[in-house]
Design a protein around this nucleic acid. Structure first.
Lengths: 109, 109
DNA sequence: CAATCATGTCAGCGGTGGATGACACGTCAG
DNA sequence: CTGACGTGTCATCCACCGCTGACATGATTG
């Protein structure tokens, strides 16, 4: 359903870079993330984090004046992987079943 | 490397719809695909097919005046799934290993 | 309360990507 | 060879997206 937003969010290289940082650090404040992303400024990183959050790919935890972000693997990431497995299953020797039931039960586009 | 193009290609809803058609039909001529995609015209579908082909997500077979397209699951789709598994592995009870070796050996962004 | 810090938001600008119609190219039938 | 057919390509227009600097907001410190 809203996997549309997830695919869109994943299309940006900077956003994938942010996901990479979060995958390595587990939890990170917005500022700490911005420090490791050198290609764009802090403002852009903030906006990207918003997109990722709305898309359901990362989750936000507010603590004082900090905001900590982390990977959300139970959000729309499931839908994305489900869709991809459904389309490319042929050449991927039966990875179906790796995701908890109802893989292959959703509409495609 | 060129998973950039693959992610970009996957970001468009029409292109995902095309992939859905191909996943269901196994092989389809350009015209047959265009007939099933009602949201845009034939020209747009042709361009989308080009993007998908360059991205390494579909393969083309020319036969006479027809061009048959089919899902390419051994192309950059592997890189995409590899990257996603690497990032979202936490909440996905160890699906790592479902892809043939060297999963998790590439850079992230 | 005033100052500072972490972060999000807004307006504006420039670039990019998608849709379309007209045209070009190869292929098959007569 | 000529005409019909299947497809790809090009020029154009339009809309959306990302980047930035300036400003706003909420929280902590003294």
């Amino acid at each position: 359903m809203d996997s549309n937003m997830a695919f869109d969010a994943l299309a940006d290289p900077v956003r994938r870079e942010i996901l990479g940082v979060l995958a390595a650090e587990d939890e990170c404040s917005a500022g700490a993330i911005a420090e490791r992303i050198t290609s764009v400024g802090r403002t852009a990183v903030s906006t990207h984090l918003r997109v990722l959050r709305v898309a359901g790919l990362v989750s936000e935890r507010r603590d004082g004046r900090f905001r900590y972000y982390s990977i959300d693997s139970s959000g729309s990431a499931r839908d994305v992987l489900s869709l991809l497995h459904q389309v490319f299953r042929a050449g991927l020797q039966s990875v179906d079943g790796a995701l908890p039931h109802e893989v292959g039960s959703e509409r495609l586009a």
